[in-house]
Amino acid sequence: MQKIRVLVANRPRLMRDLVLATISEQPDIEVLGELEDDSKIIEAVEETQPDFVIIALDRPNERPAICDNLLGHHPRVKVLALAAGQDNSVFFWSDIQSTPIESSEQGILNVIRGKTKPRFQHVM
């Protein structure tokens, strides 16, 4: 079975650790690597060809700049942006569509496993 390939690049470290603790032991998910620097994301995506990239959502309701760059060059990649604070400020993009998801273990696993479909166009 083809595993879902995920690159974990969200900040801060604690939140990244929590994501890794959630996904790294799942049999159907492969963690390609861990990045703490946004500036290296594009390069890492080109190198590892992930299905999913998890990035930080620094400001609630604001689409992270790296998102456009990523989706512009790699439309196949899906992006999950995770805030360090609130529950509901997690967004998931596929192409230009996005949808808010719950910041929980199940919420994140459902998105990665394709059980959550993007619903809105350009909400942010």
Binding site: M15, L18, A21, T22, G85, D87, E102, S103, S104, E105
Partner: peptide
């Protein structure tokens, strides 16, 4: 904690 992921995973760890 406001973030459910934080509550869930930290509790587990």
């Amino acid at each position: 904690a406001q973030n459910r992921l934080l509550r869930e995973v930290l509790s587990r760890i």
